[in-house]
């Protein structure tokens, strides 16, 4: 982080900085969950291939689980990437903004990201509630489908926490303390 000029209260956030040294809740949690989900996808898919060729047994439940694990992995992986600032974004122009504008731009991103995932929490929560209320079942196995969907709002809450954890540490606190 570059030293502040006098008369300019806005700190100069390093927009390309990655890593999560600021995180109080270790990102290892998401990493471990993501690794576990991907490992499970691998094992189920391999099991499916092996069973299909080696035996005549049925392995019909794989799609439903694999697809759920894919969604789960997507959102825990995305959460980890929010903590470490690794989502794909264009920093070319941002790096060339003056520090104050750069800080403002980062603040807008923080607000917009929060709003986006708050909407997913809200509308994802309503879908989950509906599925529970109407007793919807999954097309493959006939399981209560809210058990799958509920992870969408839950993990979106985790993402909001990650976004704010980073925003607080890199944007808001330096300005308050600085």
């Amino acid at each position: 982080m570059s030293p502040q000029k006098s008369g300019d209260p806005a700190p100069d956030p390093d927009v390309t900085e990655t890593g999560a040294d600021h995180a109080r809740v270790p990102v290892k949690i998401e990493e471990a969950l993501g690794a576990a989900a991907l490992a499970a996808i691998c094992l189920i898919s391999l099991g499916n291939v092996v069973v299909r060729y080696a035996t005549n047994a049925s392995f019909a439940f794989t799609e439903e689980f694999s697809v759920f694990l894919l969604v789960f992995m997507t959102f825990v992986g995305a959460s980890a990437a929010f903590a470490t600032n690794e989502h794909i974004r264009i920093t070319f122009f941002l790096e060339r903004f003056p520090p104050r504008l750069r800080w403002l731009a980062e603040l807008v991103t923080l607000a917009v990201t929060t709003a986006m995932f708050a909407m997913i929490v809200w509308y994802g929560g309503r879908v989950t509630y509906d599925e529970w209320y109407w007793g919807e079942t999954s097309p493959g196995l006939g399981n209560p489908v809210w058990l799958y969907t509920i992870w969408l709002p839950l993990l979106s809450v985790a993402i909001i926490c990650r976004v704010w954890g980073r925003g607080w540490a890199k944007l808001l606190r330096p300005r308050r303390d600085g």
Binding site: E31, G34, A39, G77, A81
Partner: peptide, 21 residues
């Protein structure tokens, strides 16, 4: 093996979040 799984899950999360949104 654990490290590549975790890293691949994260990179996939980045790609798949784009697909989702």
């Amino acid at each position: 093996i654990y490290e590549v799984l975790a890293e691949a899950a994260k990179i996939s999360g980045v790609v798949m979040l784009i697909i989702s949104l």
